[in-house]
Amino acid sequence: MKVLLLGGTGEARSLAQALSGAGVDVVSSLAGRTTDARLPVGAVRQGGFGGVDGLTDWLRDNAVGAVVDATHPFAATMTEHAAAAAHQLDLPLLVLRRPGWTAAEGDVWHWVDSPDAAARLLPDIGSRAFLTIGRQGIHAFAGAGVWMLARCVDPPEPMPTWCELILDRGPYDVPGELTVLREHEIDVLVTKDSGGPQTSAKLVAARQLGVAVIVIRRPPLPAGVQVVETTTEVLAWVEAHVD
């Protein structure tokens, strides 16, 4: 049985390697939005499917027997499409989501539901902001009225003229994040609740310097989907579902 692995994350790359090593016929699918993306081992397809109908057709045409969604926690559309397509074809679907971040002693966090809400709150929290939400949603901050530094892997389109831009890819470390916050006199950090260690150093740096943090909550998952937090749980699930 073939497994479709919806990827683009570090967990997905690790999972592709583990599944391939276990002899599972797995195809990793990447959205193709990031240039010079880190490719997993094994078969890879890149680009969109064309909505729920396109994904349903692809799953049927390629004789896929199970779907594992290991996309980014904020890739809500892909997860919704996967749930709908799997339901139509009566295919088993499992969602792998790394745990979200939790505040620690000394953190000053403000939770919001969207980039728009973060942009509205921003002027009340600080005057020099560091945006670390990637390029999706960054233009919601264009009219926030505070000085901003934004960090993305790839340049946003259109290129923002209202902020300074850093193009960089994690993982990041605490000394480096402390340097960024100090050199730019940042007093508020804006982030998504991505979870995981690859980009969590900024939260430690913010805590050490007393910098406030605006955290954008994860979008809700489709009703009824099965969710796990580790690749070990995925491997056990695949073993139970793949003949």
Rank of each mutant, 00 (worst) to 15 (best):
A236H: 14
I214R: 01
R98A: 03
I216V: 08
L167Q: 09
T230W: 04
M1P: 14
R218P: 01
V174P: 13
H81E: 08
V44C: 03
V146H: 06
S114V: 08
D107P: 03
D193W: 04
V67D: 10
L149F: 09
G65N: 02
T231W: 06
L178A: 06
V215L: 04
T132F: 15
E239T: 02
G47K: 14
Q208A: 07
R207C: 02
L55Q: 06
T56C: 04
A63L: 11
K192Q: 09
L209Y: 00
L30P: 01
A119Y: 05
L203R: 00
S14D: 15
R38W: 08
V215F: 06
W237Q: 09
S28Y: 07
A117N: 03
Q198W: 15
L209W: 02
V146S: 06
H110E: 02
M148K: 05
V204Y: 14
W101Y: 14
V180F: 02
P171E: 03
F74W: 04
L167N: 12
G196V: 10
A12E: 10
V215Y: 05
V67H: 06
R135V: 12
R169C: 06
G48L: 00
G224P: 01
F49K: 11
F49C: 05
G21E: 04
C152V: 11
G195R: 10
L167F: 09
A119C: 08
L203I: 00
E233P: 00
V3C: 08
A37P: 13
V213G: 00
P171H: 11
A31R: 09
E164K: 14
C163Q: 08
A37W: 01
G23V: 07
T231D: 14
V146E: 10
V112N: 02
W101H: 09
D173W: 02
D187G: 04
H87R: 13
A12C: 12
F49P: 10
L221F: 05
T77G: 13
A140D: 07
P73I: 01
R60Y: 15
V228Y: 12
G21H: 07
V68H: 01
V3Q: 11
R97G: 05
A236M: 13
L221P: 10
V146F: 06
G42N: 08
V190D: 00
H81C: 13
V153M: 12
W162T: 05
G143K: 05
V108I: 10
W58R: 01
A16V: 12
L39K: 14
V146D: 09
V41S: 15
V188P: 00
H81K: 10
T77D: 15
G176E: 09
V188Y: 00
A236I: 08
T56H: 07
L93Q: 03
D53E: 11
T79H: 02
R169P: 15
R182N: 08
E183R: 12
V211S: 00
I133K: 07
A18K: 11
A150Q: 09
W111N: 06
